[in-house]
């Protein structure tokens, strides 16, 4: 069994990159990609802890997260295609029909 701390650090870095992408980027496509990076960071943490403890639950949880991420990406991309057809852009700062 390896010490999980290196993997947990990696997971934290991946999650941080994802959050930075969500906060900083304006392209909705990139934002959805960044969310996927966040989820991958989560997966690394689950698998590292699960393997350290010898507990299969961590790996199973990672599978569940992957499944949900796929569903979320499918729905997200479908919605982005719908908005692109209407506005010819997926820049979230330009979606301003609805505002305060």
């Amino acid at each position: 069994m390896m010490e999980p701390s290196a993997y947990l650090l990696l997971s934290g870095i991946l999650f941080g990159i994802g959050v930075a992408g969500v906060v900083a980027r304006k392209n909705a496509l990139i934002v959805i990609m960044s969310v996927e990076i966040m989820l991958n960071g989560v997966n690394v943490a689950f698998i590292a802890v699960g393997s350290h403890l010898g507990d299969p639950t961590g790996s199973v949880f990672a599978f569940m997260v992957m499944t949900v991420a796929a569903a979320e990406a499918a729905v997200g991309l479908a919605i982005l295609i719908a908005i692109f057809r209407l506005k010819e852009t997926v820049d979230i700062t330009e979606l301003s029909v609805l505002k305060w």
Binding site: G18, M38, L39, E72, G76, I83, L95, L98
Partner: peptide
């Protein structure tokens, strides 16, 4: 459609943050 776009972007991010919290609890 604009509503759905905003919803999916916010929702996916929020649930991503939440699940990281879960991974900490599991750890």
């Amino acid at each position: 459609t604009e509503a759905a776009t905003k919803y999916v972007v916010f929702g996916a991010t929020a649930s991503g943050v939440m699940i990281y919290g879960f991974s900490l609890l599991y750890g």
